[in-house]
Amino acid sequence: MFLINCPYCGERDQQEFKAGGEAHIERPKQPTELSDDEWAEYLFMRKNIKGIQFERWNHAHGCRKWFNMVRDTSNDEIKAIYKMGEKPPSQ
C-alpha cells in the first residue's frame, strides 16, 4: 500500500487515490486532421515499462485533484510527484 504525497494535501494512504494510466499523453488539438493510425496511437497505445514510468494519479477520495507521479514499476518506489502542467523532472 503506497503512501502518496498529494501535492495539495500531503501524505495520504493509497486507498484514497485512483491510478489514471500513463502521463503526458496530450489529447490532440485537431483530432479530425489525424489519420486512423495517428488517432489509434493516441487512443490505444500505452507503454508498460519495467522501470521508471510516468503516471497520472487522482486524489479521488480527497481533494479530487489530478497530478503526475514518477514510479519505478520494478520496486514501486515513487521517485517524484508533480502537479498537472508542470514539467516532468529530468531523470
Partner: peptide
C-alpha cells in the same frame, strides 16, 4: 463526474 473533472483539470484547464 470523475471523467468531466479529469478533462477539465488535465486537457482543458
Amino acid at each position: 463526474l470523475g471523467k468531466l473533472e479529469d478533462y477539465l483539470q488535465t486537457e482543458w484547464p
